[in-house]
Simulated scan of single mutants.
Amino acid sequence: MSLDKVIYTAHATAEGGRDGRVATDDGKLDVVVSPPKEMGGSGDGTNPEQLFAAGFAACFHSALKLVARRARQEAGESTVEAEVGIGPINGGAAYGLQVRLVVTLPGIEREVAEQLVAAADSVCPYSNATRGNIDVSHAVA
């Protein structure tokens, strides 16, 4: 996939990998990262999976609100929860991710909500970037 044009470019620098610090060039994000306890770390900082989950949830929620507005549906009280799992692949030779998005759309019929989630999946940049690369599932709560 290639972009028609670049509208915005984010810049972040990591120092120390999973056990260090990551910051954006504008200073709006500056966090300590550390492996979670489940991966043998201290769990004292955030981790790349949490950052990915936060980004995916926010991006998907924006896409959901866009498609809901186009469909004349009220999504004001909606939420998107992203669960990002990490684990070994290829017999432990590498690591991979999986994502589960749980969407809550109060006051919208389930069938309509599922249609909105499917439409948001085709609009969301994170969905488009991950499609065919990692397992992403969607659930309507």
Rank of each mutant, 00 (worst) to 15 (best):
A57Y: 06
A82H: 04
A94N: 14
L97Y: 11
A113R: 02
L64P: 14
E114P: 08
L101H: 05
G43F: 13
N47V: 06
I86E: 07
I89N: 08
G91F: 14
R72K: 11
G45C: 07
I108L: 04
G91N: 09
C59I: 11
R110F: 05
Q115V: 05
F52V: 08
S42C: 09
F60Y: 15
T79D: 04
A63V: 12
V99I: 13
G45V: 07
E114M: 12
A68G: 11
I86P: 03
L64V: 14
D44M: 09
P48M: 05
I89S: 07
A57W: 02
G40T: 13
E109P: 01
V84F: 02
N90G: 05
A58F: 00
E111N: 10
E77I: 03
E77S: 13
F52W: 05
Q115S: 01
G55D: 01
Q98R: 15
I108E: 05
S34I: 07
R72S: 14
N47T: 07
A93I: 12
A57H: 01
G55S: 02
R100K: 14
K65Y: 01
S62L: 05
L105S: 03
G96Y: 13
G96S: 08
E38T: 09
A75M: 10
S78L: 03
P35W: 15
V102C: 12
E74M: 13
A93Q: 14
S62T: 15
V67K: 01
G43A: 07
Y95C: 06
P35Y: 15
E38D: 06
E109F: 06
T46V: 02
E74V: 13
H61L: 08
R100V: 15
A75C: 09
G92V: 11
E81H: 15
V67D: 01
G92W: 15
F52S: 00
L66E: 10
V67W: 02
Q73G: 10
E83W: 11
L64D: 12
V84W: 08
I108Q: 00
A82C: 11
T46G: 04
G43Q: 15
L66Q: 12
P106H: 03
I108T: 09
E74F: 08
A54D: 02
G76S: 11
S34E: 04
G41Q: 06
G85P: 04
A93R: 15
K37G: 11
A94W: 14
V112N: 09
L66D: 13
V102K: 11
P106V: 06
V103L: 12
A53F: 00
A63H: 07
V80Q: 02
K37R: 10
R70K: 14
R72P: 03
K65H: 15
H61Y: 04
Q50P: 03
E111L: 09
V67N: 03
E49D: 04
L66P: 14
C59D: 03
A82W: 00
G76L: 00
G107F: 04
G92Q: 07
V102Q: 13
S78K: 13
A94Y: 13
V80H: 05
P48W: 08
M39W: 14
R110E: 10
G87P: 02
A71K: 06
S62C: 10
